[in-house]
Amino acid sequence: MDFNVVISYIPTYVDAFLLTVKIGWIGIAFSLVIGILSAFIMHFKIPVLSQIVAVYIELFRNTPLLVQLFFIYFGLPKIGIVISAGTCGAVGLGLLGGSYMAEVFRSGLEGVSISQTESSLALGFSKTQMFIYVILPQAFSKSVPGIVANVIFLLKETSVFSAISLMDLMFRAKDLIGLYYNTTEALFLLVIFYVIMLLPVSFLGSVIEKKVVSING
C-alpha cells in the first residue's frame, strides 16, 4: 500500500463521491414520491391504475438495476428519447426504489388498526382528516425501518452507474486501476468513500428507528 498514491487520488475520489451522493439522493427522493403515490393507488384499489402499478412493481422488483439503466440509456434513444447519464442514473434508481418503497408504504398503511379508523370517525373526523391526522402518521412510523433499509440498498446500487459511463466512485476506481495499475490503493479508497457515504445513513436510521419504536411503544 503506497499512501502517497492514496493521498494523490483523494481529490479525484471526492469529485466522484459528490456526484454519486447527489445522483443517489435525487433518485431516492424520486423513489419516495413514486412509492407513496403507488402505495395509495394500491391501498385504495383505484381501478386500472392499481393494475398498472402492480405490473410496474413486479417488473422493477424482478429486474436488475443494470438492465433498467441499459434500457433507459441505450434503448430509449432508439425511439428519440435521449437523456444524460446523470439523469438516467437518477431516473433508474428512482424507478427501482419506487417499486420497493411502494410495498413498504403499502404495508404501513395496511398495518394501521381498523379500530383506529373507527374511533376517529366516531369522534367526528371526516375521511380526509382521518387519513391525514390518524392513518398517515401511523403508517409512516411503521414504514420507517423499511424506508431506512431501502435507502441504504439504493445507495449501494449506485455502484452500477459506471456501466453507463457516469463518473461515479466505481468508474473512478476502475479508471485509475486501468491507467496506473494501483489496484490496492484504488480499491482501498473506494471502500473508504462508500463507508463514508453509508455509515452516517445507517447510524441515523438506527436512531430514528429507536425513536419511532419508543413512541409507538
Rank of each mutant, 00 (worst) to 15 (best):
T183N: 11
F161K: 03
L176Q: 14
V82Y: 15
T158Q: 09
L37P: 02
S84E: 05
G98S: 14
I152D: 09
S115E: 14
V6R: 01
S50E: 06
L76Y: 01
I23V: 15
G94C: 08
D15Q: 10
Y13S: 05
S8H: 13
L18M: 12
F125C: 05
Y13H: 09
V134E: 10
L121P: 00
G75N: 02
I83D: 03
Q138A: 10
G92K: 00
F193H: 09
Y9I: 11
G205C: 01
F44P: 06
Q129W: 02
W25E: 00
I10S: 08
K142A: 14
I177F: 07
P64V: 03
F60E: 02
G94W: 12
L190C: 04
G98M: 13
G146K: 04
A29E: 03
Y100L: 08
L198M: 11
V53K: 02
Y194Q: 07
I208W: 12
Y100A: 06
S8M: 03
S8I: 05
Q68H: 11
M42Y: 08
Y56L: 01
L32Q: 05
A54W: 07
Y133N: 15
P77R: 07
P11T: 09
F161V: 07
L199C: 03
L109I: 11
T117N: 12
I81Q: 11
I164R: 09
D175S: 05
G111P: 11
I7W: 13
F188E: 01
L93R: 09
G98D: 13
A29H: 02
Q129G: 08
V104Q: 00
S119K: 04
P145T: 10
A122K: 05
V6L: 04
I7H: 09
S214D: 08
G92Q: 04
S165D: 07
Q138F: 13
V21H: 05
I81P: 12
I164G: 04
I23F: 14
L109K: 09
V201H: 08
I81A: 11
I28Q: 06
P145A: 09
V91R: 08
P11A: 11
S8K: 13
D175R: 04
V213K: 15
T63H: 07
I135H: 02
L32I: 10
E103Y: 01
Q129D: 03
S141C: 08
I57G: 06
G27L: 13
S206V: 03
K142R: 15
V144H: 13
T158L: 07
N216L: 13
V160A: 13
Q51E: 02
G35L: 14
L123E: 00
G86C: 11
V148N: 10
G97K: 03
V53E: 01
V21Q: 02
M1H: 00
N4R: 12
E58D: 15
I46F: 03
T117D: 07
M167L: 14
L176W: 02
L93W: 08
V104S: 01
F74L: 07
